[in-house]
Design a protein around this nucleic acid. Structure first.
Lengths: 335, 335
DNA sequence: GCGAATACCGCAAACGTTTTCGGCAACTAA
DNA sequence: TTAGTTGCCGAAAACGTTTGCGGTATTCGC
């Protein structure tokens, strides 16, 4: 399985290997005659250029690192798809690592990628502490954070307007006649979630509603968490007419609890999610939710990163994209 | 953003860079005294070894390519997670590419990975023609196919026993009293699917049932396809008591059609899926299905590949894992 | 106290490219 | 004819490692 190198081609073509290199790179200082001959021999011998060797002299790898908490999470995998696709369009490949929601692991794979000489990394933080966790490494390679809002931190990121997301969700519910709306899932370890809560609170203030936030600071945005919170709420009281879940995943947990407790959604209580992940559009689920423009976020992140790679001194940028409301069947008009 | 190299460390420590290299690699022919001193200086200077340079001399990259049709597919992303995790445990990193169900693209990214000098690639074929498509390239790098059954082809693969999968599904339905069972989705372009159909047919023969296969040879295993087939069936006749869908995704389409046509699953008709993807366990879905042991498949693929990398002349191997039945609520006992 | 073994470390080649520099031949201009 | 220009190509350095080989100083055995 020994690969044929540029030297093999050079020997065969009876030229120096500089000539072979120039033939392939489309350099002007070579005659069309020899170029054609060299290219033909390359073809015949099945030569494929070695990116590793090229990286050595070029001092770049044309590889981007992508770190996600867990690729088997519909939101992340959709982002990952678009990151890979647009990166490839731009001449880059993707090295993928999962942090498995573990800060130590996240740091480890980040270092790993630096060792791998990636030209830059796109990271979807696994926790709020990610920034502090990675801080000493951030000057080692261009980095763009995605999906997590870092507020005024001096690092590039792209995120959705989380505040506005829950706010327009609340507007929608208010228009439908809802006045007792409960919020699920103020995860303490995430700025993203903090902003969503702020959007909720602001809407409550503006619409004259009394906020009610149900959460467990230590739990994550899982199905199990939504399930647990919903179970508690349904057991206590049922005078709320709507629930706003911090994520679609949590909303799925709410659905599960409702099913078990004999609570009908949306007849008994309305439910709004956030993210618009895969399968929420299924008729059996039919979850109204706030869409994050995942493709736009992914391409923006890739382009920001490439820009940062090409202009290392150009500072940082924050890109906030607009969420949109997806009206499906889980929110009832009760006017 | 210039990185500190082994030479910088050597100069600082006043030793040759061979000594630095040996200190890091744990070579015995170096005194503990100087090793400690060198390691300390490495730490202080923030030295991280350059894998690219290492790859040049080692003639390997410790990178594995992973090609999937679409990472935003719950089955593939779950496999991808475990592939990445176990590869990392074994000292390898993952380069990810999507083929987007396109043969030309699949070939292109495969070549790309060869150029990238990956030590081997794990590929989830996007179509049946994948093997012929990639054939001229297969001797360029060790390759393991995953999830797709290649029958007797001289290439390594790991797959589930698809024949047995549908067969045990049929056994289950038969035990529940079902005698009129329809199969959805004989996709022509996949051996995997052909085997599932065979399992269905064999069960029909053994149990004395008359097979009924509903399919469109050109369509894929999508929600839309399942939806369309179900719509057709429900419009024509309803004397079938159960449907076996070729994949969970198709089963979700069936669920959608049932919902729209006012067909109750499982009261009116039972439904069995295949794959056990994410979210099928949700109470609103609650799909009985055939589980593919995704983690076991992923680790098997990685280990097979590494074995093949270390023993290039050792031939090929076929690893078939056992599917298991997941009993949920979509299949009714009608005895 | 002497030769031999041992422990430790440096030199330099090698991995497969790209690119700078320079050289040679042919051509142009006077 | 000659000096200058241009077109094309080769030699060699460089990228950051690893490793075989050789060399030196120290230790050991007798």
């Amino acid at each position: 399985m020994r690969k044929v190198t540029i030297k093999d081609v050079a020997r065969e073509a009876n030229v120096s290997y500089a000539t072979v290199s120039r033939s392939l790179s489309g350099s002007p200082e070579i005659s069309e005659e020899t170029r054609a001959r060299v290219l033909k021999i390359c073809e015949e011998m099945g030569y494929t250029p070695n990116y590793i060797a090229r990286s050595m002299v070029a001092q770049n790898t044309k590889v981007l690192g992508l770190i996600v908490a867990h690729i088997n999470n519909p939101f992340m995998s959709e982002i990952a798809y678009h990151v890979e696709a647009t990166a490839r369009k731009r001449g880059y490949n993707i090295m993928l690592c999962n942090s498995s929601h573990d800060l130590a692991l996240e740091k480890e794979v980040f270092s790993l990628m630096i060792g791998r000489q990636v030209d830059g990394v796109i990271i979807m933080p696994c926790k709020r502490e990610t920034y502090e966790n990675l801080k000493p490494l951030l000057d080692k390679t261009p980095t763009v954070f995605i999906s997590e809002n870092l507020k005024d931190l001096p690092e590039s990121y792209v995120a959705v307007d989380n505040f506005r997301g829950t706010y327009i969700g609340m507007e929608y519910l208010y228009e439908l006649g809802h006045r007792k709306i409960c919020y699920f899932g103020n995860r303490q370890s995430s700025t993203t979630h903090a902003l969503r809560v702020q959007g909720y609170k602001q809407a409550c203030t503006n619409f004259g509603l009394t906020p009610m936030i149900s959460s467990n600071p230590y739990s994550s945005s899982t199905i199990a968490h939504g399930y647990k919170l919903a179970l508690e709420l349904f057991a206590k009281e049922r005078n709320y007419t709507a629930i706003v879940a911090a994520t679609d995943t949590m909303a799925l947990g709410v659905l599960q609890a409702a099913d078990e407790m004999g609570v009908d959604i949306p007849k008994d209580i309305s439910l709004l999610g956030f993210d618009n992940i895969n399968f929420t559009e299924l008729p059996k689920i039919n979850l109204s939710t706030i869409e994050q423009p995942k493709k736009a976020m992914a391409t923006a992140a890739v382009d920001m990163l490439i820009d940062k790679i090409n202009n290392p001194q150009s500072g940082y940028s924050h890109r906030i994209l607009m969420p949109t409301l997806i009206r499906r069947k889980s929110c009832l008009d009760i006017k």
